[in-house]
Nucleic acid binder design. Structure first.
Lengths: 212, 212
DNA sequence: TAGATTGTTAATCGATTAACAATC
DNA sequence: TAGATTGTTAATCGATTAACAATC
């Protein structure tokens, strides 16, 4: 299938479809229609259909999409097929939570190691190592790391960010609650909890106001 | 200032302004213009100006906004002034990270306690308690909790969600990587890491392709 | 006064939705 | 064939950007 440019809005919906498709039972019906997908996720069916048409051409009238092919098409489109190696800086609770979470592999992300000013002695062999900050540069260069995850406190985030860029990293996943200044060719994806909180908080305000 | 309805896009940008404004040094200039804010955050200045105009009327030509008033106006608009009590279900690493993170108070969120099938014995008094699941209902009712945070594995998320709604919870912050079905009057804010990963992954794909 | 900045009104842009033809 | 579903083309909607008047 020919590769098309998609908008950010579409890009953000694709993983939602993907995770739902993956959650469907193996022994269920092998086909799924855009309509069924839309209903299950509470979305507009036209929107879903249009999104799917962008990444797959396996849709057949009256039948829908073959589930496995659709999963494969979306995965491939999102680049989840060739896994990305990443490193994480800041092995606090959040950092360790991300490091220990096994679910990222399904999304093509493989966190190789964490770095921290207080490295932990490697306990068992199958756990991912928490290395001292001094080894950051060498590790990134050796493993040609392109993605860095920042889970340090806000006040250290910018300097860690600068250091990652100096190591050749091109994409940064930022969990620190602070804006990072970066050159144009570097992408920062800010995991902005404050944003989510604002939406939730506003909903509750309206709820409470309505009650009065 | 009269309360206006704002779009979700605006709502998501407001906390970004707020956190930047808060990060400015106390002893710096007490005024800040929409232009300065836009430049610092790499955003369009017209957009910032329009957003600010929605939540504050303290802007003065040639001078800009008085920083402290602006912080107050945004905070008030977002409802951060009257703190929301929340509980968290699932005290794994991620759950504990959120529970232990002190930064949410600044956003009007106060996590009172966590619940887990394996509750921890309360160690020190100043730490937030991790209680057994059985106490969930009573706790929510007693404290009139309106917000719940879900950090359990995906396969338990829906049942936890249903239980929270039965407890009278109106807003759910979902960290489990799965879609939750809820009634219309309940808001689910899905902290979708997969979405962020998709954006990052796509950026890297383009980077790599450009190099070839 | 001149210049910087605000806030508003109009124009553009992009994304979503609706309508419909094509297909199995 | 009839009906369900796809995919495309056109219309609507909303958000962003541009232009400009108002103000200190």
């Amino acid at each position: 299938m020919e590769r098309k440019d998609v908008s950010k809005s579409v890009l953000k919906r694709l993983p939602v479809y993907l995770s739902y498709l993956r959650s469907l039972p193996e022994n269920g019906t092998p086909y799924i229609s855009a309509t069924a997908l839309a209903n299950a996720l509470g979305m507009g069916e036209v929107q879903v259909r249009k999104d799917l048409a962008l990444v797959s051409d396996g849709g057949r009238p009256k039948i829908g999409y073959f589930r496995e092919s659709l999963i494969e098409d979306i995965s491939q489109f999102l680049g989840y097929d060739n896994t990305t190696d990443a490193i994480l800086v800041g092995a606090g609770k959040l950092g360790q939570a991300l490091l220990g979470y096994g679910g990222f592999e399904a999304y093509g992300l493989n966190i190789l190691a964490a770095f921290d000013v207080n490295p932990a002695p490697t306990e068992t062999q199958d756990e991912k190592p928490i290395l001292p900050m001094e080894e950051l540069e060498a590790f990134c260069r050796t493993n040609q790391i392109l993605m860095g995850i920042i889970t340090v406190p806000a006040q250290y985030a910018q300097q860690v960010c600068d250091r990652l860029i100096a190591c050749g990293i091109k994409a940064i996943w930022n969990f620190a609650p602070i804006h990072l200044d970066v050159p144009d060719n570097i992408l920062v994806q800010h995991e902005n909890m404050a944003t989510s909180l604002a939406v939730l908080s506003m909903h509750l305000q309206v709820q409470i106001k309505d009650k009065k």
